[in-house]
């Protein structure tokens, strides 16, 4: 075995891989959330839909996103593998336990599995549809002098070869953009109360997963110090345990109640 495999398959190395992929996914969550805030813009989905195009066409982002998919899968299955190995370390369980650790820190695998299911549902709802299914197109017309944007749905059967068709009408002083209307898909999907509830509940799982996961990653990497660990723990709770899940949960709720 090379030193690298030996390191990474040791009990500490295994956790280091979890920590590194986990921290990467935390970064992704921040980026993803800030991007998705476009949903709250009252522009008929213009910003959101063009952002979606950008994210799926810009080469650097594409590479990162495939890395991201891989890390999600790796983090999930590596985590399950570690959980399985850890179960083997105690073949006979206790009749009574009164554990002094937090329940979520003990149940990261369950929370993680919920999140994995969530990610599959989430991606098949939007990502898969956006990439592989026929979606209605929308046309945005921007008045270049005022910046005012109007939108109109394209015909049912309309399709185009590029993801974003951008034309200028100099005479009218407008810019016309035709893109897939993912915004509409989102807006439509979140009229389903079942799905909204599922999303919101999943965000609870996310919150608890991250309250432990974020700071735990630093511990696994050996980054702990009386001076900055309190800050990390604070970020764990306030940013990853509260703000980010609320941000994500706000989207389905916003569409359900206000759209």
């Amino acid at each position: 075995m090379s030193w690298l495999t030996k390191t990474l398959t040791s009990s500490i190395g295994k956790k280091v891989l979890m920590a590194l992929t986990g921290l990467f996914l935390c970064t992704f969550l921040v980026v993803h959330l800030s991007g998705n805030f476009q949903l709250f813009k009252n522009d008929g989905g213009y910003a959101f839909n063009t952002y979606a195009v950008f994210m799926t066409t810009f080469p650097v982002i594409k590479v990162i996103s495939y890395g991201n998919y891989f890390f999600i899968l790796f983090h999930a299955f590596w985590g399950l593998y570690i959980t399985y190995k850890n179960k083997q370390a105690r073949p006979v369980g206790y009749a009574v336990t009164k554990n002094q650790s937090s329940p979520y820190s003990r149940n990261m695998a369950i929370l993680g599995t919920i999140l994995l299911v969530y990610i599959v549902v989430h991606m098949s709802d939007f990502w898969y549809k956006f990439h592989y299914e026929h979606l209605p197109y929308v046309q945005y017309t921007e008045q270049l002098n005022t910046g005012q944007i109007t939108h109109a749905a394209m015909d049912e059967g309309y399709t185009q070869d590029v993801k974003k068709l951008e034309t200028f009408n100099e005479a009218a002083g407008t810019r016309i953009v035709v893109v897939k209307d993912l915004y509409k898909v989102v807006s439509y999907a979140f009229q389903n109360i079942g799905l909204v509830l599922f999303y919101v509940l999943a965000m609870f799982a996310l919150a608890f997963h991250l309250v432990h996961g974020f700071q735990s990653a630093f511990q696994s990497l050996g980054l702990r110090h009386s001076k900055y660990t309190p800050l990390i723990k604070g970020i764990s709770v306030w940013v990853f345990g509260i703000l980010i899940p609320i941000g994500y949960a706000a989207m389905p709720l916003y569409f359900y109640f206000f759209k």
Binding site: S11, I12, K14, K15, I82, K85, N86, Q88, A89, R90, N99, Q100, S101, S102, S105, R106, M108, H212, S216, Q219, S220
Partner: peptide, 11 residues
């Protein structure tokens, strides 16, 4: 020896 990995629960 067959001990498990640390998952930082703090127990």
């Amino acid at each position: 020896e067959g001990f498990g990995s640390c998952t930082n629960t703090g127990a």
